[in-house]
């Protein structure tokens, strides 16, 4: 590990980078970038997370075994997202299938009980 003062300066540099990314993500949200608004918001969040994990949580000093544990939560979360979306995003792709989840907003289910559950399936 680095000498102690260099280490302290490093933490402060990471903190400044995090605040700069916060301002960037706030600023970009005010500009219409089409679909890239979402890409920018998530990309910046992932960058901030990486800084926190690598520097504040000392990830860059950890052994490969620890990295298996660090990555595990994220990998299983992405598996959940992938499997769930492979259902929701493809519901309209089957010929003759009923109204898709994706188009629910154009034809929203009313808030009365039970009778309109059909629209969700």
């Amino acid at each position: 590990m680095k000498s102690t003062n260099a280490q302290k300066k490093n933490y402060i540099r990471v903190w400044i980078a995090l605040l700069a990314l916060l301002l960037l993500t706030w600023g970009l949200a005010e500009v219409n970038l089409g679909p890239f608004n979402n890409v920018a918001a998530l990309g910046i969040s992932v960058a901030k997370m990486s800084l926190v994990v690598l520097f504040f949580m000392h990830g860059r000093y950890e052994k490969p075994l620890t990295w298996v544990f660090i990555i595990a939560g994220l990998v299983w979360f992405l598996i959940m997202v992938d499997l769930t979306l492979s259902d929701y995003l493809t519901r309209g792709d089957v010929p003759g299938a009923r109204q898709t989840w994706r188009h629910a907003e154009k034809n929203p289910p009313t808030l009365q009980p039970s009778t309109n559950l059909e629209t969700f399936h």
């Binding site: 997202v81 769930t84 979306l85 994706r102």
Partner: peptide, 11 residues
């Protein structure tokens, strides 16, 4: 977060 993704995608 998964619920958020699914519902934001729908509405």
């Amino acid at each position: 977060f998964m619920s958020y993704i699914a519902y934001r995608n729908a509405y």
